Amino acid sequence: MSSPSLSPPRDLRSESTELGDVHIGAAPERGRRRGSLARRAAAVLPGLILPVTILVVWQIASETGRISPILFPSPTTILDAFADLAGAGTLWEHTSTTVMRVVAGLLIGGGLALLFGALVGMLRTAEQVVNPTAQMVRMVPHLAMTSLFVLWFGIGETSKVLLIAKGVFFPIYVATFLGFRDTDAKLIQVARVLEFSRFDIFRKVLIPGSLGHLFYGLRLSVGIAWGAVVVAEMISSSSGLGYLMIDARSFNDTPVVFVGILTFAILGIASDLALRAIERRTLRWSDRRAT
């Protein structure tokens, strides 16, 4: 009678090794993530030292009466005013109005700047005709044009949006013009040898080659747009963050003025961070990326 066949014993040591490999492989991955977070924290923390110190000193000076609470309300008082305005919906209403004006001004001014910048960058004749006038208008102070815009277009939305558009036009125009001119001439020559059409050269060579300049000009324009909308809303408006600040100033409500400043700071930082993230993603292949 033959003995029944027995299955070979399980190689527990081998199985243990395989499981161990999984854990060993996962540990470095977690280590890399922690290292990445640590590096990001190390990069951010030095930039927080100065503002945090200013806020602490400001708060202490306010509580001890070293500074006037009317001129410089404490940070906690400003945060309370921020919370009250946000809870009542007033802050969001004025903020949305301001954001819509900035977006409209960027679309109009940025679109025209791209058009004229591309023409001047591609055509010498356009540069000779357009660029001298554009540079002359660029030197006119922005505030000097405010009264004219109100006279020409009234006190409605048109004058506000066009004032923003005028402010954002020139950084994008100059960046587009320089971006096209700084594109590697060898790439253009290769494209001509390959019998690319002018549109293909524009789309496949000039646009990618000038993206670094374009993003830089756009980031400058966004900063100018936030400043321009403040001026527009303070001069003639019944809504928006600029109006909220000028109205609060007339009633000596300084915390609300600081709430407007804080909101503009948040909007400006958020928009710049968003543009930098888009730039990094778009220009992965290039060394001209946001820093």
Rank of each mutant, 00 (worst) to 15 (best):
S3N: 10
P4S: 08
P4H: 12
P4L: 03
S7W: 05
P8Q: 09
P8E: 11
P8K: 10
P9K: 15
R13S: 08
S16V: 13
T17D: 14
L19N: 03
H23V: 06
H23F: 08
G25T: 12
A26V: 02
G31H: 14
R33V: 15
A42K: 13
A43L: 12
A43I: 07
L45E: 05
G47Y: 03
I49R: 06
I49K: 06
V52Q: 02
V52R: 01
L55F: 10
V57S: 05
Q59D: 13
I60T: 10
A61L: 11
A61G: 02
T64W: 15
I67Q: 03
I67L: 07
I67A: 04
S68T: 11
I78A: 07
D80I: 11
A83D: 09
D84C: 08
L85N: 08
A86I: 01
E93Y: 12
T95G: 03
T97N: 01
T98K: 01
V99A: 10
V103A: 12
V103T: 10
A104R: 04
A104I: 04
G105H: 01
L107M: 13
I108G: 02
G110H: 00
A113D: 02
A113K: 00
A113I: 03
L115A: 08
F116Y: 09
F116H: 05
F116N: 06
L119C: 04
L123E: 09
L123W: 07
Q128Y: 02
V130C: 03
N131C: 07
P132G: 11
M136Q: 07
V137C: 10
V137D: 12
R138F: 11
P141I: 05
P141H: 11
A144Y: 08
M145T: 14
L148R: 02
F149P: 09
L151V: 03
K160P: 00
V161M: 07
L162D: 10
L162E: 12
A165F: 05
K166E: 09
V168A: 09
V168E: 09
P171E: 12
P171Y: 07
Y173E: 00
A175S: 13
F177A: 12
A185Q: 12
K186D: 15
L187H: 15
L187N: 15
I188K: 05
I188Y: 04
A191G: 08
F202N: 00
R203F: 12
R203E: 14
V205H: 04
G209W: 04
G212F: 12
H213Y: 11
L214F: 12
L214M: 01
F215D: 05
R219E: 14
R219L: 13
R219W: 08
G223D: 08
A228R: 00
A228C: 15
V231I: 15
S236G: 06
S237G: 07
S237H: 02
L241D: 01
L241M: 09
G242S: 10
A248N: 03
D253L: 01
T254G: 07
T254W: 01
V256H: 02
V257W: 04
V257Q: 05
F258C: 02
F258K: 01
F258G: 01
V259F: 02
F264A: 02
A265L: 06
I266G: 00
G268E: 06
I269A: 12
S271V: 04
L275M: 13
A277W: 10
A277P: 06
A277N: 10
I278T: 15
R280E: 14
T282S: 14
T282K: 11
L283W: 14
L283H: 13
W285A: 05
W285F: 11
D287L: 13
R289D: 00
T291Q: 03
